[in-house]
Design a protein around this nucleic acid. Structure first.
Lengths: 236, 236
DNA sequence: TAAGCAAACTTACAGTGTAAGCATAAAATG
DNA sequence: CATTTTATGCTTACACTGTAAGTTTGCTTA
């Protein structure tokens, strides 16, 4: 039972010293994606980074889809799991900010999260805790579904805007000035006005994650209050 | 000058009767993507559908990226362009519903929209009109940015949830019942409860696009009212 | 009539995910 | 201890991808 780790349990024609494992593969894949972007991550390059042949990966993963699912699980596991401690709004606020930060750290992840249904244990744990937090605060389940949807759409949507922005946020004003002449004021007066404002530094265009978040949280608070008045306390 | 259309202006070694054109390529690509999904759309298959060789496409498009940008422009051009007629909320509501419906009609488009910055004329026109609508209603530009962001995140996020759902909305209750036993009630009590509710048909889990939308619109209305009281009428 | 050029074509290349099958050595079984 | 099984690596091969490079054709213009 107690065999020293890093020793293979079965035979192989190994080139490299360390044995392969699902965890080691996912870890390396995550690092490569962080460094070079997901579109540069191929099975062959991943194998190379692990000092192994491409097909060896398939002993631990059934296909690339599974690799990506595993990588996303790793990302989700970095999300802070919310806990209700009397203030659901601050719990949800922390939840959103944490997820946002993690998704910025792994810029390839947000888009992939939106393209599949994740049922890994990290995701299930996170979702369950999120639901529970709102449930404890008096939300009923349909409202919880709506609330989480609204918040998550904001998290992913806003994060993607930052990721897709052609320039980093601190050069936004400069870039707006550069592109402004390309926006005909007669055809697109409002876009032109917006760009002008950004150029003047009076509006960042990004970094207002929390404004939209509060819009949603305040809205939910009002819906919760209204529901509470009609149907009494929904706390089980 | 006036040469009858469908006749080539220059020589070629053409196989097919009709001449190629950017519009014809984009049109066919859009149809193929609608029918088979974007991941099945390759330059070769697109060329085949046009009765042409793959490389011929590159006389009209510089690369696949440009093809996809063009396809997305086609999708955006189907969005209803909002107009302010005294009621910004109903204008924004129509805007959101229209975009949502179009994105459902072209299920491959939403994810791609989130992965790039679109600066085509259809997108610019749509964005400018959207900004203008809110501007006419008294929003200042920073608030407009936040408002459009919040609404668009909802549009794309919600649409993607529907698109990614493993079953269509009318079989949701059945599917929930099928998967329910796979969700351990002790580990994930709240997810289990949610699935139970869906199975009982008391909550759809989807098709509540407008709930989240109203959450945002009502929130914006309050912010607008508050801003109006402080800074007076911001209408130019 | 000749030159220029746009739009089609052919060929080729470097890459992709992965199916099929082989080789090895540790573990399980007799 | 001898044998079989099995897990894990490797090699080869295939169908498919986007697209660079170069060629052919015939309309348009000088």
């Amino acid at each position: 039972m107690t065999n020293s780790s890093k020793k293979p349990k079965h035979g192989t024609t190994r080139k490299s010293a360390k044995p392969l494992s699902r965890a080691r593969i996912l870890n390396t894949a995550l690092q490569l994606a962080d460094a070079n972007g997901i579109e540069k991550l191929s099975m062959r390059k991943l194998a190379l980074a692990l000092d192994v042949e491409a097909m060896s990966l398939y002993n631990h993963l059934s296909n690339k889809e599974e690799l990506i699912d595993g990588m996303l699980e790793g990302v989700v596991s970095e999300f802070d799991v919310p806990i209700f401690e009397g203030d659901w709004k601050s719990a949800m606020r922390s939840r959103a900010i944490s997820a946002h930060e993690v998704l910025i750290k792994h810029p390839w992840a947000a888009l992939l999260m939106l393209s599949r249904v994740n049922v890994g244990s990290a995701m299930m744990t996170w979702a369950n805790a999120s639901y529970g937090c709102l449930h404890d605060a008096g939300f009923d389940y349909p409202l919880i579904d709506h609330a989480i949807n609204a918040m998550d759409n904001h998290i992913y949507g806003f994060t993607l805007q930052i990721i897709n922005a052609p320039v980093s946020s601190d050069e936004y004003a400069n870039a707006a000035g550069h592109y402004l002449p390309l926006i005909p004021a007669d055809e697109y007066p409002h876009i032109n006005a917006m760009a002008t404002l950004i150029m003047q530094g009076e509006h960042s265009g990004v970094n207002d994650f929390e404004f939209g978040l509060d819009l949603i949280l305040d809205g939910l608070e009002r819906v919760l209050a209204a529901a509470g008045k009609v149907s009494g306390s929904p706390i089980s």
